[in-house]
């Protein structure tokens, strides 16, 4: 069973790789755009720290680490999540989702691996560079344990991103004309470029519990700096697991709701 799905994943990835090789020029445009957005993301930060030493307890290099994680996740979002999202919304609108549902494999798996844009991986390189730069400015390096914890939290963040995405897709079954879902997704995600402790009151609550942006970028950054306490980390992992299960349930409900475009 598991081997079959691994082979399926391999096939889908191979197809994505072959497709992207046809658009080699994208490597350069995506790469340049990614560098450009790195600058755009750092600009407001530079303005703040041009006038202040710290912001809500975060120094400039520390805040850069958050942007580094943000850029990395953005690469994953644009490279693996958003292409599938637009593809499935298109399927629902045109009624061609039938062909996916008819295939002898789990529909969620099929739509989640339908499309990749590997060139977007350039973003991850940019994110790594930013992380390296931040630690050079801090004049110390993270301990191996901190790196391990940060990587675990990166997996958590990706799982969370995926669950949010799955819920968004499920909504598309009810409200068909949602070709702008990807934009909504991106704009909510945009707030994750700031450490969550910058926000107060209702915003803090919203970004920690309702749209858990804290788990996406702030916690991995704290872990990398060695400032995340174990209980918060554990809480984040367990919360994400619960969220993942919930998303799967919503997806199954939604798929039952699907009635093809022509029927």
């Amino acid at each position: 069973m598991a081997r079959r799905y691994l082979r399926l994943l391999g096939a889908q990835l191979r197809i994505a790789g072959l497709v992207s090789l046809q658009y080699r020029a994208d490597f350069f445009t995506d790469g340049l755009l990614s560098l450009f957005w790195l600058g755009v993301n750092v600009a407001p930060l530079a303005v703040v720290y041009g006038r202040r030493e710290t912001l809500a307890g975060w120094s400039f290099p520390e805040a850069l680490i958050v942007i580094g994680w943000f850029t990395w996740l953005k690469g994953i979002l644009d490279g693996a999540v958003n292409p599938c999202l637009t593809a499935i919304v298109e399927h629902i609108r045109k009624g061609t989702l039938d062909f996916v549902l008819l295939k002898p494999a789990d529909a969620q798996f099929l739509v989640s691996t339908a499309k990749f844009a590997p060139w977007r991986g350039v973003d991850s390189v940019g994110g790594l560079l930013l992380l390296a730069f931040a630690f050079v400015r801090l004049q110390r390096w993270p301990t191996p344990g901190a790196v391990l914890a940060a990587l675990l939290l990166l997996c958590t963040a990706v799982a969370l991103l995926y669950s949010l995405w799955l819920i968004a897709i499920s909504v598309a079954f009810w409200v068909v004309r949602l070709d702008n879902l990807a934009f909504l997704f991106g704009s909510v995600f945009d707030a994750a470029r700031w450490p969550v402790s910058v926000f107060r009151g209702a915003w803090r609550f919203l970004f920690t519990f309702v749209i858990p942006l804290a788990i996406l970028t702030t916690y991995p950054s704290l872990a990398l700096l060695g400032r995340l306490d174990a209980r918060t980390g554990l809480f984040a992992v367990l919360g994400t697991l619960a969220f993942f299960v919930l998303a799967r349930q919503i997806w199954r409900r939604a798929i039952l709701h699907y009635s093809s475009a022509s029927s």
């Binding site: 004309r177 949602l178 702008n180 879902l181 934009f183 909504l184 991106g186 704009s187 909510v188």
Partner: peptide, 11 residues
């Protein structure tokens, strides 16, 4: 619905 989504993208 689409409209509300657009509204939310400009937050």
């Amino acid at each position: 619905a689409e409209f509300v989504v657009w509204l939310l993208t400009t937050t």
